[in-house]
Structures are given as structure tokens and as C-alpha cells.
Design a protein around this nucleic acid. Structure first.
Lengths: 152, 152
DNA sequence: TGCGGTTGATTATCACTGACCTATAAAATA
DNA sequence: TATTTTATAGGTCAGTGATAATCAACCGCA
């Protein structure tokens, strides 16, 4: 027995394992009742463990028939790929180096041309907004974006 | 079984699927009778699910021979897509609004789940890095990213 | 002793309803 | 024919109940 948040995370992960479409719908209230906790605890778990950076998207509706939908973007376990990429990126990376990496990833079919474009636009935004190139922030964002894609 | 609004939405969507011209005409009263609800329920569904932001335009006429016409916007040319999206985004957009737009774009098959995730991570990066939410910068980056995609 | 975890009061949003409002066309009337 | 009346359609808005989100305060362990 770890803790409540961990158990809820595990439960959601198990649910996601068992479906085809890479998404599940659930009721916040019901889940809270199941774990005998306040509903806001569910939000905490989602906020801390099912972020876009971790490869998940959350959709929800309030009111009658409200729900929370959790989408997993990638399913394959590729922790090796991730750590490999993170190793390459490191704590700092220039825009130029980043572009090289992205080109390599595309040629290996790990990302599409469109995805590469999106990442480059985002990285360029950072580079353009600061006076000097912020290689740390670039590395941070790149890790987050690629990590989300590969499924941390 | 979801809920009434969802069923009505589904029905309208099905109707739209089955026509050539990307629009349908219907009677509010008849539809309300079909679903055994008050007529204003139809307005609610249209207002909440068939907005321009979601790619639809509504025309209507009151009085005898009244009708409601639902038009699905399809942007053939890339320049149309881009200007349409730019119009929706405008000069400022909140992270929340952006997420809604991205969900709508994905449901219209204009972006993939992975692409949506990448954009959300990038937008989240902006939101997180400032003290206050910078709706102008969010709009700027979002226009750049989506504009790039539509052109690709 | 700082940070993740936990809690519950408050706030925001969604689905739905119904009373009242506005617009239109056809029929009635002058 | 021109005007008024009537029937019939859709529009608006605020209220209610059911959810979910947020936020700030507290807890507890390494």
C-alpha cells in the first residue's frame, strides 16, 4: 500500500490497459466514492500524473451526466527511446542542434513531418522571444514535447 | 445512453453526414417533438455544439414556414483554413479556449491526437512560465503552429 | 521542514425548462 | 388593393439542480 494518489493512478492505468481506443470515461464522483475520498482528490491525481507532458489529455464536462475523459496518446512502452532522446538533448541544446535531432527522428519515422514542424515552430518561438538563445529552456520544452509523444 | 443534448447532436450530425451540400434544414418544433423536449432545448444544443468555432453556421427564420438551417463549414483551400482559424483565435485566446478549439479540430480530423498534444504542451509551457496568463502570446504561438500545419 | 498528499468550502459550468418575446405569412377585413 | 388580424413559427433569458474545477489550508513523512 503506497498512498491514495498512487492507487488511483494505478486504477486509471489499469483501465486504460484494457481498452482498444486509448481513452476511458469515468465519473469523478463515482471514482471518489470508490476510493472513499473527496472528489477533488481525483483532480489532484490527474493534474500530477496525467499531464500532456506525460502523454495524456483530459476532457471533461460538468453538470448532469458529467464525466472525465482520459486520452492516452501513445501506448507503446518506449522508455528506452525516451531516455536515449533525453540523453541526446541534455540540459541544454541550441535551436540548430534541435533541428538536426528532429530531422533524424523524422527519418527514423519516429515523428511525422507535421509533428516536426510543430516542434520547430514552438522552439523558434522561444528563441525569438528572448534576447539571447535560451538553450536551457529549449532543452526543457523539447524534452517535454518529445516525451509526450513517446509516452513517458 | 448519454443525454438528451448528445442524442440531438448525434441526430443532426447523422443528417449532415447523409447530404451532399453540407447543410440541412429542419423544424425546431418537429425536432423537439421527436425528442420529446421543449423547443428551446434545440437552441441550447445548437448554441453549445454547432458554433462557428466548431465549424458550423446557423441560419433560421421565424413565423410560418419557419426553419433552422445548419451549415457545416468546409475549407477547401489552405488559405481559407488558415484565415478561418485565425479568425477564431483572434488576437488573444486563453489556454482553456485554445484547448476547446484543439479538441474541435481533432474531431474534425484536421489535426491528430499527437499534434494536439504537442500544441498543448507548447501552450502550457507559455502559461506556466509567466505569472499571469499571456493570452496574446498564446494566440500568437497557436496561430503560428496551426498556420504551419494547415499549410503543410 | 519542504513538498507531495489530502481535505472541504467555494466557484464555475452544463443540461434542461418554461415564461415571455419577436418575426413571418396567410387570412380576414376595410 | 391596402391594412389589420391571426396563427404559427423560432429566439431569449433567467432559474434550478447536478456535476466538476479551483483554491487555500492542513497533514505527514523523508
Amino acid at each position: 500500500m503506497q498512498n491514495l494518489s498512487h492507487d488511483i493512478e494505478k486504477y486509471i492505468l489499469d483501465l486504460l490497459e484494457g481498452v482498444e481506443d486509448n481513452f476511458i470515461s469515468l465519473r469523478r464522483k463515482e471514482l471518489a466514492e470508490m476510493f472513499e475520498c473527496v472528489p477533488s482528490q481525483i483532480n489532484y491525481v490527474l493534474r500530477s500524473r496525467f499531464t500532456p507532458e506525460q502523454g495524456y489529455l483530459i476532457e471533461s464536462r460538468r453538470g448532469e451526466h458529467g464525466y472525465i475523459k482520459i486520452l492516452r496518446i501513445t501506448c507503446e512502452k518506449t522508455s528506452e527511446k525516451i531516455s536515449h532522446i533525453n540523453e541526446i538533448i541534455g540540459d541544454e541544446i541550441t535551436f540548430k542542434e534541435a533541428r538536426k535531432l528532429l530531422a533524424a527522428l523524422q527519418s527514423r519515422r519516429m515523428i511525422t513531418g507535421r509533428e516536426r514542424l510543430l516542434i520547430e515552430v514552438a522552439l523558434k518561438h522561444i528563441t525569438d522571444s528572448g534576447h539571447d538563445e535560451d538553450t536551457e529552456e529549449t532543452a526543457y520544452l523539447l524534452r517535454n514535447m518529445l516525451g509526450g509523444l513517446m509516452g513517458a
